[in-house]
């Protein structure tokens, strides 16, 4: 099947530092793919390059909604344009809108799927009102999906840590993506929360029918969730394969445990 995300030879330099070195990666429809690697390997940079937050030095990024239009080239697009195309992300260090409620945070995610502008805002005609109603309803649904309905009117900054991570997921889902990029979604969660997250991510994939690419350090989570795993070290892809293959890959073991372990 045609991949939903197809990355060729992605390269990113910061001054002298090569944070990404000709990385190839692809994600297929309804697949859960993990991107792992030691700290500083360039995983977050990879996300930033795909989502238009950084402009990659070289390489190509293609994406296509499954069953939808032709592949679109994402290089050079602004972050909001990438999101409009159907890629949505969360951030490693949570970036919610702290002084907005949980519901409002998710409503912001609906922004690129709604259209009322200045005139609509001032006159608030039937179309605008309907759109607002739908925005609220859909946002609330998403809060329920990530199990945050109890916090609906709570300020994002008042939410517990694990809830903030899930709120970011709901906000990203609100943009109606076909590919969800999660940057360390389990970071800072306790084992119970991680278990729930595992279940949530699978459920999102199944119910929404979308693909998920996640960066994660929790190996147990990665192994149980992923269909395929990509491993990065020092900006380069050092391995890819099924969880079973990665588990026994000597390169990967070396990268994680250092020379002496081999």
């Amino acid at each position: 099947m045609e991949p939903v995300l197809d990355v060729h030879q992605l390269t990113m330099n910061f001054g002298g530092l090569r944070a990404l070195d000709s990385v190839d990666l692809d994600v297929r429809p309804k697949e859960i793919v993990a991107l792992i690697g030691p700290n500083g390997a360039g995983k977050t940079t990879f996300f930033n390059c795909i989502t238009g937050i950084y402009e990659p030095t070289g390489g190509d990024v293609f994406a296509a909604r499954p069953g939808g239009a032709r592949k679109a080239r994402l290089n050079g697009l602004k972050p909001n344009q990438v999101t409009e195309k159907g890629l949505a992300r969360t951030f490693q260090n949570i970036r919610l809108f702290p002084n907005m409620t949980a519901l409002e945070n998710v409503m912001i995610g609906r922004h690129c799927r709604t259209s009322s502008g200045i005139v609509g805002a001032i006159f608030r005609g039937p179309r605008t009102r309907r759109e607002e109603r739908e925005t609220v309803a859909r946002s609330h649904e998403l809060l329920e999906k990530v199990d945050l309905a109890e916090y609906v009117n709570e300020l994002a900054s008042n939410l517990p840590y694990g809830a903030q991570r899930r709120l970011e997921i709901a906000r990203a889902l609100a943009t109606e993506p076909f590919l969800l990029l999660l940057d360390e979604p389990a970071a800072g969660m306790n084992p119970q929360e991680t278990l729930e997250l595992d279940e949530l991510i699978t459920r999102i994939r199944d119910e929404e029918g979308i693909s998920i690419l996640l960066i994660e350090h929790d190996m147990k989570l990665v192994m149980s969730l992923s269909d395929r795993i990509f491993v990065m070290d020092y900006g380069r892809k050092i391995a890819e394969g099924s969880p079973e293959q990665i588990r026994v890959n000597p390169e990967v073991i070396k990268a994680y445990l250092g020379e002496e372990a081999v």
Binding site: F14, G15, T44, N48, I53, Y54, E55, F91
Partner: peptide, 8 residues
């Protein structure tokens, strides 16, 4: 000045 990329 060198243009730098703000770290995200």
């Amino acid at each position: 000045g060198r243009s730098t990329t703000q770290k995200v």
